[in-house]
Design a protein around this nucleic acid. Sequence first.
DNA 1: CCCTCATACTCGTATAGACGAGTAGCTAAG
DNA 2: CTTAGCTACTCGTCTATACGAGTATGAGGG
Lengths: 262, 262
Amino acid sequence: MAALPSGILGALDPTSDRAVFRQIADQIREAIDRGRFKEGAKLPSESELVEHFGVSRMTVRNALSILQSEGLASSEHGRGVFVRPRPPVRRLASDRFARRHRDQGKSAFTVEAEAAGSKPEVDSLEVREEKPAPDISARLGSPRKVLARRRRYLLDGRPVESAVSYLPLDLARGTQIAEPNPGPGGIYARLEELGHRLDHFDEEVRARMPSPSEVKTLRLSSGVPVISLIRTAYDTEGRAVEVCDTVMAADAYVLAYQLPAN
Amino acid sequence: MAALPSGILGALDPTSDRAVFRQIADQIREAIDRGRFKEGAKLPSESELVEHFGVSRMTVRNALSILQSEGLASSEHGRGVFVRPRPPVRRLASDRFARRHRDQGKSAFTVEAEAAGSKPEVDSLEVREEKPAPDISARLGSPRKVLARRRRYLLDGRPVESAVSYLPLDLARGTQIAEPNPGPGGIYARLEELGHRLDHFDEEVRARMPSPSEVKTLRLSSGVPVISLIRTAYDTEGRAVEVCDTVMAADAYVLAYQLPAN
DNA sequence: CCCTCATACTCGTATAGACGAGTAGCTAAG
DNA sequence: CTTAGCTACTCGTCTATACGAGTATGAGGG
């Protein structure tokens, strides 16, 4: 039936005390690293691997699941298991919110994506008032209620980031910030028009595995972590005027920061 | 035999088209989220779950492996499966390399860890000359050879970070930088004594799943990503004088940056 | 009292089989 | 030519069983 998976994969070492499914995973991983299986290429099917290594199917599946959890491969029902392609990466520079970068009409995300030749989309925009979670509340100086602006960002149809901005309600209510479209320059431009000249941002960066709901909204394949970025914006009077909680598909981002040495 | 796993877990929905092992994972995940199983607590054993849900062991193992890949649980051979405890987190501030923080005798890592009440260790220190990898080489202005300083950092016996510093060989050879102990203030202090006054650092932050070797050296449990941080140090003449490639256990770190708004 | 060892539990690895469901390509009917 | 359906392949889910290996506990011997 199944043809041999070519001479790329060797044999098992029965004297080794390394588990068989690990040895199989090792061999495939090495073949991927060496470029014997290229990005996006189809790996040998389970039944081919069963035949090649002379093991049961569960053992092969066990091996493949290792590679998937490492982010090296992903399976597609009915099609096969493929070497996971590395998507184009979006680079976030630390000056991306600098005043000078505030474009007239478009958002920073849109401008940047078009410059990189990608088609940007913003999605599931929702603006509402709500009671803030404790950690958000603490950062904003414990307001009773906040304005929450939720959205999802896509590049060429692929969701890459979802974000929620929280602003103290007394500051945002009734302004254009509470509208779905905050206008040219985004909410930071509106905040400055309202007299809150921005002074600096604090950013906290974490990485972790996604929750099931994050897997869904970012359409993450297994073995892809998320970067969680929480940014707090302060005005020149030292007041926290916005907290933005962002979750990014880690395989789509590099964060770049520049730090002074003094 | 196995006692019932208490009333924390409910029953399966046979009408649902959600796979049984996913339903089991959902129930356990929800119980963890609601605090019914606390941090570090032992989950019901596989055989208890088999009995409770009336499914085969592989189905239960499949469910548990989901939770492990999400970083929610980790198994210990012969003991059980436990809710993964959140370790204390090390916060890296963006001014951690500022001149004013350079301590006399100790490294930044040591000072900070002791302040936080942890026992710091530095490990597997290795200093050697080598040919740089292409990406490192490019950042340093393509030197033929570099000095590489490798080390691993531990907190209270747990490895949390491994790092390699690369410096152009013409700059480091014969200086104290090439010694295992670079002296008070670390290599940045030595660089400045050599006339390379530091101007700024560039940092690139990525997150991904660890390679098998990283799992080993950082003793990572499954479902824990790594943060990869590549820092380039520039002197006031614009020359890149050091590249530091760091891999951190993501569950042990928060990176904090402060950005100006102008 | 301490140590050893048996034992019963835990998870780890592996087999063999079955059926379901998604995909792709070919074939035969329209 | 187009389309509907068959078929063969893919991975997904689940059962039942077996043995191995690490851990904890308690009983028994020293």
